[in-house]
Nucleic acid binder design. Structure first.
Length: 506
RNA sequence: GCCCGGUUCGUCUAGGGGUCUAGGACGCCGCCCUUUCACGGCGGUAACACGGGUUCGAAUCCCGUACCGGGUACCA
């Protein structure tokens, strides 16, 4: 049977890094199954928390990561619509059935009444009493009110919810694909609200109804859902449906070990939203402050990194393309414990990805950052720059740091000047410029030969010349091989820069 | 509080009774390469939460404790 999985985020915020991992694992499961499908379902049943732009961000982030959606809001599909706010009749129908069967009941308790109940029943040992078998008989609902009274209230349009009627004294066991058998007692499960007073379903109801309607075979979601799973199983039973296979993923923790909260992460300099990894300007400015951390990486690197955060192939492989992940991923090899985000490893992985790119591809990935810095750059020069510096990059936009490949150095590194610019530097640099004037070929070999000859003629060490020349032509003390760098800079510019440095630095 | 889950190097992890003097990766340190900085190569540092069992033998199985995390909403 083909695997049908869904990624079901709620548009209450931008796509979280943990959300992308959940989506990835789901995607991999779908792709490794003949005829499998990966669906995107928007769970927008909470009007009050809806965030404008969140759905667009989710879709764009998935696209960026290369996770192609088979069925979803934009692409459609046989089970459309894929937005829960557009599926209310289906939930209504399910609830009506449950109420008719006596599996669910109408309740009129106001938020104040619930609050009062909790306060009244709270004890130091049990500070959070719930609406359930132990309390439902003391509340205002269809189980305690005479039928005429219930009808009267309904006719008067009194706000009400529908709750699941949980039978106490039973135990619910399910076999989690990652954790094995997990058991809950129904005494611990409250009479969950299924339909809210605004007529919209809660997550629990909508989720079960949709997963069944959309023929989902595997529910792969975060560990925070583990405690609600018995509610879902009970719902499947009450509706007479077969429950899908469940798999609960370990949580992603902040680098310091705690919860990966937006607030804390931002303070620690950790990007939590996918858009913060997508690019310098990928986040909606109204949702992410300008000074929030960014770590623009290649999608291949983030995917590779996330795959390994909570899963391992069982052998020593670390590098995976999305394609390879499809072949290697197994749900039963997913870890059970939370994983701390390790940005160093992401950076390393990104460097690896960069090194596997062609010069042309690398140039294109770096282009936006470079052009933001130095203006329009022609293709050939950008590719040459990429070829020159590729081994030295951690993230593609670092190429923009090497402004000297595109324009005159703006300044000379102060510490570098102090260390490398000696008393004889101006004289030697000037002499080298003279020699380059005579070097029509201006190749790596010829420029190096010229410098070696000069060193010999002047009776000085090679370093006495090469370091000041690097400083003069690039403004820095670090970079690729000197002579390949000079060739990229070009003969005329090189000579001009040498002369200028002689003047400026003396 | 109660319920559920988890616990191997700093971090991600391998390992599922003997092959574990615990393997790999990131990081860190050192050496080589290199008259720069990186890449790369080689080497090093570093872990089975604790206590009881079971067993000839336990990182691996059981129990307890501790700690971490999640849940306990008309949020998802």
């Amino acid at each position: 049977m083909p695997v049908r999985v869904r990624f079901a985020p709620s548009p209450t915020g931008l796509l979280h890094i943990g959300g992308l991992r959940t989506a990835l694992y789901n995607y991999l499961l779908a792709r490794q199954s003949e005829g499998g499908a990966f669906l995107l379902r928007i769970e927008d049943t909470d009007r009050s928390r809806y965030v404008e732009g969140a759905e667009e961000d989710i879709v764009e982030s998935l696209r960026w990561a290369g996770l192609e959606i088979d069925e979803g809001p934009a692409v459609g599909g046989p089970h459309a619509p894929y937005r829960q706010s557009e599926r209310t009749e289906q939930y209504r129908a399910a609830v009506d059935r449950l109420v008719a069967d006596g599996q669910a009941y109408i309740a009129f308790d106001t938020p104040e009444a619930l609050e009062a109940m909790r306060e009244r029943l709270a004890t130091p040992e049990s500070p959070a009493p719930t609406y359930g078998a132990a309390t439902r008989e003391r509340m205002t609902n269809a189980l305690t009110l005479p039928p005429e009274e219930v009808q009267r209230r309904l006719d008067e349009g009194e706000p009400h919810v529908v709750r699941l009627r949980v039978t106490p004294g039973e135990s619910v066991t399910f076999d989690d694909a990652i954790r094995g058998p997990v058991t809950f007692q129904t005494d611990e499960v409250d009479d969950q609200v299924l339909l809210k007073s605004d007529g919209l379903p809660t997550y629990h109801l909508a989720n079960v109804v949709d997963d069944h309607a959309m023929q989902i075979t595997h529910v792969v979601r975060g560990e925070e859902w583990l405690p609600s799973t018995p509610k879902h199983i009970l719902l499947y039973r009450a509706l007479g449906w077969e429950a899908p296979q469940f798999a609960h993923l370990p949580l992603i923790l902040s680098p310091s070990g705690g919860k990966l909260s937006k607030r804390k992460a931002e303070q620690a300099g950790v990007p939590v939203f996918v858009c913060q990894y997508r690019g310098e300007d990928a986040c909606p400015p109204d949702l992410v402050p300008a000074d929030a951390p960014r770590l623009p990486v290649e999608p291949e690197a983030l995917v590779n990194f996330l795959a390994l955060l909570g899963w391992s192939p069982g052998d020593d492989r670390e590098r995976f393309t999305l394609e390879e992940l499809v072949g290697a991923f197994r749900l039963d090899r997913v870890t059970k414990s939370g994983a701390q985000l390790d940005l160093d490893k992401l950076a390393w992985l990104n460097g690896q990805v960069l090194r596997d790119l062609s010069d042309e591809a690398l140039a294109e990935r770096a282009r936006p950052a470079v052009e933001a810095r130095v203006g329009p750059v022609e293709e050939a020069r950008l590719v040459a720059a990429a070829a020159l510096l590729r081994e030295r990059l951690t993230v593609a936009h670092d190429l923009a740091e090497a402004t000297y490949l595109f324009q005159e150095p703006e300044a000379y590194d102060e510490a570098g000047v102090k260390r490398r610019w000696k008393d004889d530097s101006a004289r030697l640099v000037a002499l080298y410029a003279d020699r380059l004037e005579a070097d029509a070929a201006f190749t790596e070999a010829s420029t190096e030969a010229a410098m070696r000859q000069l060193a010999e003629d002047e009776g000085v060490g090679f370093g006495r010349i090469i370091h000041p020349v690097r400083l003069a032509t690039t403004g820095t003390t670090v970079g690729a091989g000197m002579f390949e760098t000079l060739v990229v800079i070009g003969r005329a510019a090189t000579i001009r820069r040498l002369r200028r440095a002689v003047e400026v630095l003396g």
